[in-house]
Amino acid sequence: MARNIQSLERAAAMLRLLAGGERRLGLSDVASALGLAKGTAHGILRTLQAEGFVEQDQASGRYQLGAELLRLGNSYLDVHELRARALVWTDDLARASGESVYVGVLHQQGVLIMHHVFRPDDSRQVLEVGAMQPLHSTALGKVLSAYDPVAHSEAVEAERQPFTGATVTDLAGFEAVLDLTRARGWASDVEETWEGLASVAAPIHDRRRMPVGAVAVAGAVERVCGAPGEVRSELVAAVRDCARAVSRDLGAGRF
């Protein structure tokens, strides 16, 4: 068996010690309880503090467990919380762009649409909340695959079906699309899933920069694209602004 890393073992022992009761412990209590030199104990505590796993009381200088530990156990962002936070920003995006807006999250092998704002033109439209979209060909799916490792492995392992002549299905080509997505921070789908439709998407991150979903604007290809195959730059900017605003809101969220 490989040797364990001593400093990690000591850090774990410290967390167990601090979890032992309501009390806060001083540096010398921690050091003597674990049989460590004060300097060694202090180094580990300081590192844990920097990560948020331990907090130091300002007045007494004593240590206690940090809020980040609680967050680890609660890290999963509820998709309905995501919708509640996205509501205002996505309304504004639909209004400003004149197109439909979608928020998607990874679900099994695809993109689950968990929020949909109608195109603001008063035409009859059907709410698509709950619908599934493919990971490899849609703008939402590409963004999720580029930023979320779980989505990435799903997209890589699945059969990438050609929906139109423009769908990228070969692995090397798909990885190149994801590289480009990561490099510029957004993805597009120009008639790669549905003929006549184009979309552009950007990632939504939570407070720890984890990718939790993606927001997209979608519409007729002649409106979404300026030059053939090129999505309009002002749409890209609007989608990215929206994604950033929702991310900021999630970061400011209470716990």
């Binding site: 309304d91 209004r95 704002v117 603001p120 008063d122």
Partner: peptide, 9 residues
Amino acid sequence: ANWRRAAEW
């Protein structure tokens, strides 16, 4: 004319 439908159930 300003009123816009965002969603309908």
